[in-house]
């Protein structure tokens, strides 16, 4: 057998690596920090393991607010996922399958408003609106506000996805004797499940990590989701407790990574239709 001889690096390649390695290190460092610091006995802002320990996690589990925040984040994230996914699916279906006057303009307005009027710009009006509706300091207010922010993009993505599913499947099912509900549950939902999962995942990650909306709308510490609870981890003299923060951050990050891995493994992000994510 002939061994492939390793080709010597060209000058260009060497320059390329010299440029790339610091960039890689720059982006990798925070991630390494996130996985190392929680287990460190002397946590600091630099990456050093010292003696491995689990004491940081023990302290997190002893903190009542920290544990309640997990529950709160879950309520908010799941609530938003359910609302956004169901509403976006229904809206996207109509926008994709029915032609009506002003449909394209409506879609443009959706995408425009969702990308222009967001976050900080809408802070005051959102607060006023929730105040008027009596939704301040309630999870429902947070869920509704975040859903409002996430819906336009979700509708847009799902509409594109549904466009790629041929309507003849639904028509064939109708002629084959199905009721409209049977078409929905036996044909359309299975075919669009991948698009729905993408939207659910995007929504989950967004809702799980959102800081601004719950920060504006929630007052009681017992209702805080993780993204805000993390700000309460200070020692008596006002110094951030880096050990706890890093341990908590890791716990906060893991569900998102796990969700992503499960879906990646099960679906591999290939679709019947044209959309790839």
């Amino acid at each position: 057998m002939i061994r492939k001889r390793r080709r010597p690096l060209t000058a260009l390649e060497i320059v390329r690596y010299i440029v790339l390695i610091p960039i890689l290190a720059f982006f990798l460092a925070p991630i390494v920090w996130l996985f190392v610091t929680p287990f460190s006995s002397r946590p600091s802002l630099s990456i050093s393991l010292g003696k491995p320990t689990l004491s940081n996690f023990v302290r997190v589990f002893q903190n009542k607010i920290a544990l309640l925040a997990f529950r709160n984040s879950l309520i908010i994230a799941v609530g938003t996922v359910v609302l956004v996914t169901v509403a976006a699916l229904l809206a996207a279906y109509v926008l994709s399958r029915k032609k009506f006057k002003g449909r394209d303009i409506l879609l443009y307005v959706l995408i425009l408003f969702s990308s222009v009027v967001t976050g900080v710009a809408a802070m005051v009006p959102l607060f006023m609106m929730n105040l008027k509706l009596g939704l301040i300091d309630k999870h429902l207010g947070v869920i509704l506000t975040m859903s409002g922010g996430l819906l336009p993009t979700s509708v847009f993505i799902l509409k594109d996805f549904i466009d790629s599913i041929s309507i003849t499947y639904e028509e064939a099912a109708l002629v084959d004797g199905s009721t409209p509900l049977q078409v929905m549950f036996r044909i359309f939902l299975p075919l669009s499940s991948r698009g729905v999962i993408v939207i659910a995942m995007l929504t989950f990650v967004n809702a799980w990590s959102n800081f601004l909306v719950p920060f504006i709308l929630l007052r009681s510490t017992t209702l805080y989701p993780i993204s805000i609870a993390i700000y309460t981890f200070f020692t008596e003299i006002g110094v951030p407790d880096i050990g706890m923060i890093s341990a908590y951050s890791l716990m906060y990050t893991l569900p998102v990574i796990v969700v992503y891995l499960i879906i990646e493994k099960r679906f591999g992000f290939s679709f019947y239709g044209g959309l790839k994510a």
């Binding site: 003849t168 028509e171 064939a172 109708l174 002629v175 084959d176 004797g177 199905s178």
Partner: peptide, 10 residues
């Protein structure tokens, strides 16, 4: 369509 009892091949 479902109640017309016709079968279609697309």
């Amino acid at each position: 369509p479902g109640q017309r009892n016709v079968a279609m091949v697309f």
